[in-house]
């Protein structure tokens, strides 16, 4: 699949944003965050800002961005529509939580309730994002049971890294909890991605797309067109195996291992600089991971072209 920048940025940024909102909501619910609204509101603004940037980016690849609102209508059947609805509905408890924080209700019952609702909706939004891809039976590397856990774990990990970095900037903030969570979820992402790659690397028997397999090997003789068409530009993207292997290592080293080490250093006393340095590492690594998620995905239509 063609790794379009706008969609990769969308899933990475909005994953981090909703992941950060998830942890902020949970920590607000258990009172593990500074009570001041001067912490809560900017923290929520960063989380929602990341999500909004991702959502806006996703509209850039639309042919008619001005009609994007129509995408909210078909939530009964479409995961993309559900994702749009969930993404927007999540803003409601997040904004209520911001108001509650300003009003001094965090920690408190109001903060607990809205925090939990915001966390739940943020998680559901990431579930919807993952299901857009995981529900497509046409793309073997996406129609995998591990795709949904990988999306959730990536969001939880990147959200925890962002939350830890933000807390460390605040004098009364204690980033130890999100830093610990980031370490735990960093390892989880590492394990899930390795398992996912091992799974998609398994040799598979390609389906008999033409139904001509009954005669023996089917070999393309004359292509239907001599130039690349929409199908080949969108679905015919090929990444060299050697490059993919290298990029996988980069994704895990820069995206997971390095941030985990920085978290450990921060917990050992290095503090804010290590936590802040972990953010760009995590974003670059996850961006590469998401690029590979697209680039390594092979669409079944390619079989008609013998690719």
């Amino acid at each position: 699949m063609n790794p379009a920048f706008s969609v990769i940025f969308f899933t990475t940024a909005s994953g981090a944003g909703y992941g950060m909102l998830f942890w902020l909501g949970l920590m607000a619910a258990i009172g593990a965050v500074p009570a001041s609204g001067w912490f809560g509101v900017p923290a929520l603004a960063v989380a929602l800002g990341l999500s909004t940037a991702g959502l806006l980016s996703s509209t850039f690849h639309l042919g008619h961005p001005e009609r994007a609102w129509r995408a909210l209508s078909q939530w009964r059947s479409s995961w993309l529509s559900r994702e749009g609805v969930a993404a927007i509905v999540t803003f409601i408890p997040a904004l209520v939580l911001a108001v509650a924080w300003m009003a001094g209700a965090v920690p408190g019952r109001a903060g607990t309730v809205t925090g939990l609702i915001a966390a739940l909706l943020a998680m559901l939004t990431v579930v919807c994002t993952a299901m857009i891809y995981a529900s497509l039976r046409t793309i073997r590397q996406w129609h995998q049971p591990l795709v949904l856990p990988v999306y959730l774990l990536c969001a939880a990990f990147s959200g925890a890294v962002c939350a830890a970095a933000f807390l460390s900037c605040y004098p009364a903030g204690d980033p130890r909890l999100p830093a610990l969570l980031a370490v735990a979820f960093g390892f989880a992402v590492l394990a899930a991605k390795l398992a996912y790659w091992r799974r998609i690397d398994r040799p598979v028997v390609a389906p008999d797309a033409t139904g001509l397999g009954r005669f023996g090997t089917v070999r393309p003789l004359d292509p239907p067109h001599t130039e690349e068409n929409y199908l080949l530009k969108e679905m015919g993207f090929r990444v060299a195996r050697r490059h993919a292997a290298r990029l996988r290592r980069i994704a895990l080293m820069v995206g997971c291992v390095l941030p985990i080490l920085l978290m450990v250093l921060a917990l050992a006393g290095l503090g804010a600089p290590a936590l802040l340095a972990a953010v760009p590492c995590m974003l670059i690594g996850l961006f590469v991971e998401r690029w590979l998620f697209f680039a390594e995905a092979t669409h079944v239509v390619r079989l008609y072209y013998g690719r």
Binding site: L62, R70, I132, T138, Y230, M235, V301, Y304
Partner: peptide, 17 residues
Amino acid sequence: CIGCKLCSWACPYGARE
């Protein structure tokens, strides 16, 4: 149609351009 192209991803037969 908003031109999100998801339908073309969902079609195994390359019917949508």
